[in-house]
Structure formats: C-alpha cells, structure tokens
Design a binder for these strands. Structure first.
Lengths: 356, 356
DNA sequence: TTGTACGCGTTATCAT
DNA sequence: ATGATAACGCGTACAA
C-alpha cells in the first residue's frame, strides 16, 4: 500500500533493504525487528510502532529464502495436476488458490501431464520436498513408487478426485453420480442405452471412471436392463478424442436411444457426432453428461453438476488445518454434493421434446 | 531415477542429506561437490564420478533456498494472470510451463483477478521480487503504480497480449484479426452487421479490445458501410456475461444479418441467444467469433484462429533468452500468425447455408 | 523487554 | 584441480 502510494520511483537500481537496515533506522536490534514484524509478543507497543514505521519507510520485505532456510517453512504449496488447461483442473486450482492466497501461501504448479511425461516428475518431487510446505494432488493417479516418494516427504497432503489411503481427501460420490445420471435416462423410458466411460487404463481420473461406471451398472441392474441393450465404450474425457468413439456408437446396427457420457466434454462429442449424422437431439437421441462443465449449458446439455471450485477450496482449507497442528489424528474426508440438471438434450423416449 | 528405483523406502523420518554428507562420502570438500554437481569445469572427471555416485547413493538434492540465498537465482518464474480458468490464460500458462520446465524453471502463479482484487497483488509483488528470476505478464492491464513497481524490480519481463513499453512482448496482430474477421462477413454480402467487442473500460484485454475494434472499423470503412447499418455492443469476453448483450442485439428493430464477436465465448453467447429466439444459423443469422477456442468447433463456429499455447511457449523462450545474457540491447517483439477458419455458422446473405 | 550470536545449506572467492 | 572459509538474510536460543 504505502509502496504503491509513493508516486516517485527513484532512479537507479533499487537496493532492497534488509532486516539490518530496518533495525538501524528503528534504533533496535534485528531480533526485535523480527519479533515486531511477525507479531510476536514481548515487544513494547511503542517499539513495535517504530519498527513498523521503519519497515514501511524502507519498503522492507523479508527474504523468503532466508526465512525458509531458518524456519523450514516456505509458505508455498505444490499442486500436482495432470493438465492445466482442462476446465476441471483449472477450476480446482483456482479454488485452492483463492483460499491459500488469503492465508499468505503461494502455488507452485507441477503440471505433470499423463504418465509418460510424469516420470520427469520424480526428480521434481525431490525438489518439491524442500520447496513446499504441503501438497495438493489433483486426480493424478500415481504409481506405487511415486506414492512412496510422497510418503517419504512426510508432508501434509490432500487429494482431490482420487483416493490415496491415509491422506486427507476431497471429492464427490461418483458412484451416486453415475447412478443418478443413468436413472434419469431410465426414468425417461430409455432401454437401449449407450455409455461412454473413462478408460480405466488411463492415468488420470481412474477412481472417477471406476466409480461412475459402478453407479451406472447399479442403476441398470435395478432396472433389469439386459446386456444386449447396452453399448459401452471408453473415451478419453475430451471432446476431440471422443468424437470417433461417439461416431462408432451412433453408427451401429442397433443405435441407442440415449447416450450417457462420464463427462460433459465427451457428451458434447456425442452431440457433434449426432449433428454430423443428422440425428435430432433429443427427438431421435437423448444425450447426457456429467460435471456441468461451463460449456454444458451452451449445448443445452442435461448433466449432473459437481462443484469443482468448491472442491479446490475445501482441499486448501484442509491443508491449512493440517498446518495448524491438527495432529496426525484421523484422516479427513469431505464429500461434496451433486445435483441433477435437466436441460433440453434429454427427453422421454418417443416424445419429440423441444430444445431451447 | 535412482530414487524411484530403490524399492525399499526405509522407515522413520527421512533425513535428507546435505552437501556436507556427499562431500564426506565422496572424500572431497563441499566446494568440489558443488562444482561437480553443477557441471562446472575444473573438476577431474574421475572426481566428478565419485561425487555423482555419492550424491545418488544419498539421494542428495540441493536445497533451493540455500542456493537462492547465495546465488540470488531462484529458478522460479512469476506468472501474473487475471484468470486461471479461462481457456486463453490456461493455455498460455500451459505453453510457458512446458518450455520453462524443460529448462528447470518452476512457475509461481499470481492469479490476480480483475482490478478490484488486484490491489492485493501489490504486496505480493514485493514478495515476487525476491522469489522469482523473471516475470510473465499475461493480458493483465496494470495501472501506472504497478508498472512502476515492476520496473523497480529490474527483472526480465515478457508480456503476452498487452504492450508494456520497453518490455519484450509476444502477441498477435489484433488489428489484422479484426479486419480479417469483418472482411469475411462483408465478402459474404452482409451489410447490417453487429459487433460485440470487449469493454475497453475493463481491466483485462484492453489492448485486444481496442485493436480488434480498430481492425473491424477499417474493414467497414473500406466497404463504405454507413453507420446506421451497424450495431456495436460491449461484452465481457465470457459466455454467461454476454448473453444479455446478445439478446438485446438480436431483439432490436433492425436485427443484423450477421454478428461478429471479439471472442468465441461471446460468439457462443450469440448462438445461445439466437437459439432462444428460434433464429436459424446461418440461415437467418451468421455468427462469427475470434480465437478458435477449443469449444468453437463444437458449435461449428467460424472464427479466426490464434495460437495460444505457442504464444506461451514463445514468451517463455524470450524470458530464457533474457537470462542467458541477451543484454538490454533492444526490445524484442514476436507476432504470431492467425488464420481464418470457415465453419458452418456463417453463410452468404440470402443463402440458407447448411450447418454440419 | 531487548540484544548478542549462532546456524540454516549453499555458492563464491581465494589460496593452495 | 581442490580445499578452507566467508558470506547470503533471517530466526531464535540464550543472555542481559
């Protein structure tokens, strides 16, 4: 504040001031400066004011490196994420960042990609060990060696969208989500149904893929749908990658009357494939996704909403709790609610249904 | 590598080894260890091997804080960005990250939001000063005080999507982009045309808004379109925020036959508004965007493509060049090419045009 | 309540 | 080619 207010940036290289300078100006020792600035007690109010004034005057900011060296704390959180650019991950990070920033923490992003590149992460993890106070792992499936590595760091760690035994966890009930979604299609009278799930052989979203599929199967089982009425395929969670899959599904002999995809991106791919084949949605084909991706409503896509940003916030809050001495008591889990969002891409079988 | 290979994580807290331990095991001094590990010369190959072996055996990783304290280098880049979650910024960051990671740099994200919150950044900038070796500023318009602050840091800095005098810059030719887009609609015979631009009073994308508008006006001027055939509105670059704007534009007495939006997100909002009013695209209304957002093709949206990830990569490369002693010679600018992408949302006036 | 002095783990300088 | 040692800037016993 004071800094920005000073309207006259002096010329010449700015020698950033050190704690010693503040001590000199305030007429105290460096130890007192340190205590005063960090709000510790055992400092006379009057002295504290003098120190604060001197610090403000000198634009003093402690060197984080020197502080870390001594204290072992970095006020930096490592975020391990497979993709920065996907809606889901960007929103998780955004939510976490908002909370952590408020508490004076910064985010160091470890954009590890899929498993192939992830190897390069291993070394980074080492770096991570001495660079960060805690770790957020977002939907990146880790192999046992990597998990062992993380454990050896003995760092507070919270996962989102995956289940690492013994670590705090934030997520949604993916089984219920799959069930709710499929149940919606069943209630509309659909029987010949396609499902595009995540590929469990992939490296990301594994738990999500497995659990949503389990929910889907549960709903189908209750409805007593025979297997020959089903068409299951695996997608890669993206629009582009799923289009060929969707085309295959829509071109079969016994075309389904409804398709559920495990993500909205994949559902949008189904919409594209349907448009390419001249199929009317929802007249000839109902399409449904999961997530309520920010673009879902632009396609009038029925879906099951999850609160992504909120999950990021919750994960960050858990991490902060771990810092504030919530001992290694028991593991914490937080499951956020989800919600069916009916839009125009699904309709009762036989009815024409009108899309907004 | 060696670390991950060791299949037996020992129990008990892992005392990470220090340079002193490596020196002891290798039978040399810490100075030699430092030289050997950093690939400096003046180390006998044989000695280097002994050091490397000892380091591997001990899983030694240098403390970045201690190294930074002494060397002044952090191997961290600060990225100042208004929004993490928007496609454009996420892809810029992703591109930059890919290049920087390869060179051993990490990304520290400064998600500053719009101007209101940005104030909180000011203090962070101070932190930034001692934490990072360089700065990437992405389309965030900074007020004079903030610019002065950045300058006082004397740090290498590259901007993307804005023009900070005297700093390296990566971008596209937004004037040409606006011109090309509007020219496409004009060539299709449209005369009554709507334009949804960015609001120049906003804090982000200011230069983009101004320049694209200038290109649009240039094309209109050449075509001699009278002002009464135009309808200009400002959007906020997002789908949600632009829908009311689009609805207003489509509900006027003299509805345009074509609408150009300064971003694909805003163009998608126009498509939503058109669908809500039952307008056929492109039969009754041509719609065009700019960017080639990842979702543009799902709406079969004609647009002008820019290479976003590549801009991030280019900016990172420039920053690296600045580190490698490209003296303060002259300022560097890099302008990436753009390309008209014709899809099904635009058609010649009067013709029905068929959407895929 | 305040000051002194040491140590955090590394890099850089200088001597050998 | 290698080693001894002094910083780097801060936090914190411990002494006063």
């Amino acid at each position: 504040m004071a800094r920005a207010a000073r309207a006259t940036p002096r010329a010449g290289p700015v020698e950033s001031s050190r704690i010693h300078d503040v001590a000199r100006v305030a007429g105290v020792s460096t130890a007192t400066v340190s205590r005063a600035l960090r709000g510790l007690d055992r400092v006379r109010p009057e002295t504290r004011d003098r120190v604060l004034a001197a610090a403000a005057q000198l634009d003093y900011v402690p060197s984080p490196h020197a502080a870390s060296l001594k204290s072992g704390k970095t006020r930096v959180i490592g975020v391990v994420v497979p993709f920065l650019t996907r809606w889901f991950f960007a929103n998780l990070i955004d939510g976490a960042d908002q909370v952590l920033r408020q508490h004076g923490y910064h985010l160091l992003v470890f954009n590890v990609g899929d498993r192939r590149e992830q190897r390069t992460l291993v070394l980074d993890q080492q770096l991570l060990a001495k660079r960060v106070d805690g770790v957020l792992v977002l939907s990146a499936d880790l192999d046992p060696a990597e998990v062992a590595l993380l454990q050896s760091l003995r760092l507070p760690l919270v996962t989102v969208g995956l289940d690492l035994p013994s670590y705090d966890r934030v997520g949604i009930d993916d089984v219920a989500v799959g069930d709710v979604a499929m149940s919606h299609l069943l209630e509309l009278g659909h029987r010949r149904i396609g499902y595009i799930g995540g590929n469990p052989a992939e490296d990301v979203h594994i738990a999500t893929a497995v659990n949503r599929l389990a929910g889907v199967r549960a709903a189908l089982g209750r409805a007593g749908i025979p297997d020959e009425d089903l068409c299951f395929q695996d997608g890669d969670w993206t629009v582009r990658g799923t289009i060929p899959v969707a085309e295959r599904m829509l071109s079969g002999r016994r075309r389904p009357t409804a398709v559920l995809a495990a993500s909205d991106e994949m559902a949008i791919a189904v919409l594209c494939a349907a448009r390419a084949r001249g199929l009317e949605v929802p007249g000839q084909l109902s399409v449904m996704g999961i997530d309520d991706h920010e673009m879902a409503f632009t396609h009038d896509l029925t879906t099951v909403r999850q609160q992504v940003r909120e999950q990021g916030q919750a994960a960050a809050t858990m991490l902060l709790a771990a810092f504030n001495g919530r001992g290694p008591g028991q593991r914490r889990e937080m499951v956020l609610s989800t919600e069916l969002v009916r839009r125009g891409s699904t309709a009762a079988i036989g009815r024409r249904g009108s899309r907004r």
